[in-house]
Simulated scan of single mutants.
Amino acid sequence: MTTTTWARAWMIRRKDGLVLGFTDHDAALNFEGIRFRPDHGMSARALVQGSGLSVDNSEAAGALSDDAISERDILAGRWDAAELKMWEVDWSDTGKRRLTFAGSLGEVSRANGEFRAELRGLAEPLNSARGRVFHPRCSARLGDGCCKLDLVAGGFQTEIVVEGLEDGRIFRFSQFPDAAPRWFEGGVLRVLSGEAADLQGKIKNDVTLKGGGREIELWQSLGLSPQPSDRLRLVAGCDKRAATCRQKFNNMLNFRGFPHLPSEDWLLAPQVGSRNG
């Protein structure tokens, strides 16, 4: 490969299977079953690659356009954690190429008609904590394989249609399924239909209104606002405490915390006249 025939190519694959290819060459390239388009949908800074297990560090940038990476899709989170590969390739013979980066998109930001996305290398998961954490509160997620709670059969989730929405995060309902006050605080709201489908947010407040209505407030607005008649799913809130697991969910058998674990104060500050002294 010579410098006169050297080019770069990027492949990005969303979780829903959509694949896009881009190149800084002035003509389209084809290899690995992908067509790499010669437009400005995406470019990337030089990679900073570490030795050993250090995480590759770089950034991708590009213009927001309807036929490539749209602002609406970014707001909807459809590009979150998308797979990304980058090659150096001889455009005169695409069989001569080498993979220079493999990883995923991290945090995506947008401004002035452009987007910027952090690139995360394959070693990024090594930054995550591993092993069991010994803590008074439960380490499971409500309804997962460790919790084992059947959210549907247990009545711990409900579906409802959007009526009113304020500031992109406050939902008001005149008719609401029978549920105890503050039942959904700390839970999750997920959009099931419409352009905002698959977006979800953490529920901050669940307030019973005068007349029997309900107000569900999120901690922050969704990337795209659901429209009236779009369907939502609300999942009950769980604060991970043993008392909540026992009284609200009747699931203490699967509680994954250690409620009788002494506190740090108990361990570090000896009590006068006690066995800790």
Rank of each mutant, 00 (worst) to 15 (best):
M1V: 11
T2C: 02
T3P: 02
A7Y: 00
M11P: 00
I12L: 04
K15M: 05
L18H: 07
V19D: 05
G21I: 00
F22T: 00
F22H: 02
D24Y: 03
H25C: 07
D26N: 14
A27H: 15
A28N: 12
A28W: 11
F31L: 09
G33W: 08
G33K: 04
R35N: 11
F36L: 04
F36I: 00
D39S: 06
H40L: 04
G41L: 05
S43V: 09
V48C: 01
V48A: 11
G52N: 10
G52S: 10
L53H: 12
D56Y: 09
N57R: 12
A61M: 11
L64H: 02
I69E: 02
R72T: 14
D73L: 03
A76N: 13
D80G: 07
D80V: 06
A81P: 04
L84Y: 13
S92P: 01
L99H: 08
F101C: 07
F101M: 01
G106F: 07
E107Q: 11
R110A: 13
A111E: 15
R116P: 05
A117D: 07
A123E: 15
L126A: 13
N127P: 02
S128G: 08
V133H: 13
H135W: 11
C138G: 04
C138I: 01
C138K: 01
A140K: 02
G143N: 04
G145Q: 10
C147F: 08
K148N: 11
L149N: 10
V152R: 13
G155Q: 05
V161M: 03
V161R: 12
V162W: 02
V162F: 01
E163K: 03
E163G: 03
E166A: 13
E166N: 12
I170V: 13
I170A: 11
F173D: 10
F173L: 09
S174H: 09
P177G: 12
A179Y: 14
A180S: 13
F184R: 01
G186K: 05
L189W: 08
V191R: 07
Q200S: 14
Q200G: 10
G201N: 03
K202E: 15
N205K: 10
N205G: 03
D206P: 00
V207R: 10
T208F: 06
L209K: 05
E217R: 10
L218M: 11
L218K: 03
L218A: 13
W219V: 09
Q220K: 08
S221G: 11
S221T: 09
G223P: 04
L232E: 08
L234W: 10
L234A: 12
V235G: 05
A236G: 05
G237W: 02
G237C: 02
G237Y: 02
C238H: 04
C238N: 06
C238M: 08
K240S: 14
R241N: 15
C245Y: 05
R246I: 04
Q247V: 07
K248R: 13
N254P: 00
F255E: 04
R256W: 04
F258D: 07
P262N: 10
D265R: 14
L267H: 05
A269M: 12
V272W: 08
N276C: 06
G277T: 15
